[in-house]
Design a protein around this nucleic acid. Structure first.
Length: 413
RNA sequence: GCCGGGGUAGGGUAGUGGCUAUCCUGGGGGACUGUGGAUCCCCUGACCCGGGUUCAAUUCCCGGUCCCGGCCCCA
């Protein structure tokens, strides 16, 4: 074989594409129903933009290249940076809230494993301009409604970075220390966390508080208890109040409060959430949260924003497989003379204009072979065009499922 | 970047240090000249790549690559 597809990429068969489109369209209707508006941005951006919120280290996880003008470019690893750039370039003067969504392929230079590819699809949204809890809630509700729409079983965990940040502030931890702690929390490496915390000054109290926060996991009722524990940490209390307000507007009840969600890197500022499916190895299907500092980081005046993205491929892995079938028609001339063939094309043209999915035999097949073909590819109806019937203005319409066949006037097709 | 398991026609497989590499399925054509799912026949089409060992490698060894999965990481 001469060519193979690049590592970590996939070809999608017609059946796979059909299924992906069905799911995509269902999710799309939910975004539309919240009156989010679809946008698109370039597949590649300047490396500088892509590395802005994470730093140079990101390079090894990006597809980076230089264009002919020696400008350094990268394939987008996600859409948030691009959307924010677009917002700052052109959309910042639109009325708020700005509600945007996208469905796009993204690229990360990583080793493939279950549910991880070098090219993958994200469907997500950004709600820009509202700092209010109801905006956070709308994002959570939208994320859950989408998955409900496609009947996916999931678990959602919601946290708030302000709680831990309030603690870090009181204990005056350095940025490095804070980052290291968040990494360990995100990984759920509690043993490593305990060891690390033991090394720090004021370790006992800090350790005690952090583990109390991490253990506050469950339904909404954990919040009042945690407030009591954290009553001396005003920033944390503020965060808990914020989270409580948000949850008042979240319409689904099956949520888990979990302050262990540290969401990878640092641009989230408030509420954060993750959604998990059931499949082992590719469980996380969605992540999101509030990022009120990012737009400012990109050089615009401070603007609150909140959003999420589905990992579309993981969504596909976490739903039950389903059958797809399409309504299609094959038109077969009984003989291969030009007049009959042209008549076939005329009929096809008419049916196509009325929205039907129509094939004309292109293989010069004899009738029995053509029927055989129709049968194996799952064509529902066959129109047989013969001279005798045609002279009376009729054709044979055959239902491939039932085998029934009837003469139909050309006008009645 | 690291680790484990794999790689034989489009899909699924058998097998071997040597002879025309097995079978099923799929695809094209025919038997069948105006009615499908059957049967028969013909055609199509593969040992991942490179190096080594050997008289001889698809087979054994090494390296690479890709796939599956696990770490690291995951904006």
């Amino acid at each position: 074989m001469m060519f193979k597809k690049p590592k970590g990429t996939r070809d999608f068969t017609p059946i796979e594409m059909k299924k992906r489109r069905i799911i995509e369209n269902k999710l799309r209707t939910v975004f539309d129903s919240y009156n989010f508006k679809e946008i698109n941005t370039p597949t590649f951006e300047s490396f500088e933009l892509l590395s802005k919120k994470t730093g140079e280290d990101i390079r090894k996880q990006l597809f980076v290249f230089k264009d002919h003008g020696n400008r350094e470019m990268g394939l987008r690893p996600e859409l948030t940076s691009s959307v924010v750039r677009f917002y700052i370039n052109e959309l910042k003067n639109l009325p708020k809230p700005l509600k945007l969504y996208y469905f796009a392929n993204c690229f990360r230079y990583e080793n493939p494993q279950a549910g991880r590819y070098r090219e993958f699809w994200q469907m997500g949204c950004e709600l820009i301009g509202s700092k209010y809890p109801i905006a956070d809630a709308e994002i959570i509700n939208l994320a859950m409604d989408g998955l409900n729409k496609i009947n996916m079983d999931y678990e959602i965990n919601i946290g708030h970075l302000g709680v831990l940040k309030g603690i870090f502030k009181e204990f005056e931890l350095s940025e490095d220390e804070e980052l290291k702690i968040r990494r360990l929390i995100d990984k759920e490496d509690y043993e490593g966390l305990e060891n690390y915390l033991s090394e720090l000054k004021s370790s006992d109290e800090l350790k005690d508080i952090i583990f109390k926060i991490l253990n506050s996991k469950g339904d909404k009722s954990v919040i009042p208890d945690l407030k009591e524990v954290l009553k001396d940490y005003p920033t944390s209390i503020e965060a808990l109040n914020n989270l409580e307000e948000i949850l008042e507007f979240v319409k689904h009840d099956n949520i888990v409060i979990n302050f262990g969600i540290a969401r990878g890197l640092d641009y989230y500022t408030g509420m954060v959430f993750e959604i998990y499916g059931k499949r082992e190895g590719a469980r996380q299907v969605c992540g999101g949260g509030r990022y009120d500092n990012l737009i400012e980081l990109f050089g615009e005046q401070p603007t609150p924003a909140v959003g999420f993205a589905y990992g579309f491929d993981r969504v596909m892995l976490n739903i039950d497989d389903f059958e797809v079938e399409d309504e299609s028609i094959l038109i077969i001339p009984i003989k291969k003379d030009k007049k009959l063939l042209k008549e076939c094309l005329n009929i096809a043209d008419k049916l196509r204009k009325s929205g039907k999915s129509v094939e004309v035999d292109l293989m010069n097949r004899k009738l029995n072979k053509a029927l055989n073909y129709a049968n194996t590819v799952g064509i529902n109806k066959v129109i047989i065009v013969g001279e005798k019937e045609l002279s009376e203005g009729k054709v044979s319409l055959k239902n491939m499922k039932t085998g029934e066949q009837e003469l139909v006037g050309l006008e009645d097709l």
